[in-house]
Nucleic acid binder design. Structure first.
Lengths: 127, 127
DNA sequence: CTGATTGCAAAGGGTTTGCATTGGA
DNA sequence: TCCAATGCAAACCCTTTGCAATCAG
């Protein structure tokens, strides 16, 4: 059994969580960094990454991957994330049907399904 | 209208597709590279990446992201990909229920749902 | 006090790209 | 012949890390 080490609440962590709860844009670490800098000018990108990853590990937020970079989202279970693989935009949808997500050998952290495809705007651009 | 430039069939591309159709392991570009090298010793990693991305763009294969790296899979629609965010293992499941994946403003390329969580083995390791 | 957390900057590592060469149609 | 595709290696760029300083509990 790995002992959980005690965690501290810092201004950096508080502000980042606050920010994530205030937006619905699935920001990248870079975007979070730029916004937190307005309130904590001396914060560093590395710290933002560390806090975001820690929060994701604790399942307080969701970590998504789109086109080679990570995006973070305050935990909203029960949503479907539609990710356009062309432009990277992410839109949330409600599930219109109960999904049977009970697997005997796999524990789903959260009902946030990720579906990739092409959004309306991008599909207009004929290949 | 963007004109589609004509494509050529090369040994490299043929072998890579052949390989992807022969496995069910969702290999990384690196793994594909190592395996193709057995047949085409002089092939380069860059070429593997270029071919894999081209195939994914043409929707001939699926490009998945797990823990910061890409994995490729011969197109198998109608599957659920269970991705363990701890160890990165990917297992396929059949869908036991028809999903309503018709969105008015989003075209789903393929019914390959990606669900992240923790596999049995990793969940045994208590945090 | 203690040691978890931060800032800074360098290192890491998967992926992309520029360019000369090769080779498919 | 023509230009897409390749090989090679350097460049990219997002993310992670080491370390000394800092600060929450």
């Amino acid at each position: 059994m790995i002992t959980t080490k005690k965690k501290r609440n810092t201004l950096q962590k508080t502000k980042i969580l606050e920010y994530l709860h205030s937006v619905h844009t699935h920001p990248t670490a870079e975007v979070v960094y730029e916004n937190i800098k307005k309130k904590i000018p001396m914060i560093s990108l590395g710290t933002v990454y560390r806090i975001l990853n820690a929060l994701a590990d604790d399942n307080e937020i969701i970590k998504l991957e789109v086109n080679g970079e990570f995006r973070y989202d305050a935990n909203n279970c029960g949503h479907i994330h539609l990710i356009c693989t062309k432009c990277g935009i992410i839109s949330d949808r409600e599930m219109n049907k109960k999904l049977d997500l009970n697997f005997s050998d796999f524990s789903v952290h959260c009902f946030s399904l990720i579906i990739k495809g092409t959004c309306k705007k991008c599909s207009r651009r004929v290949k």
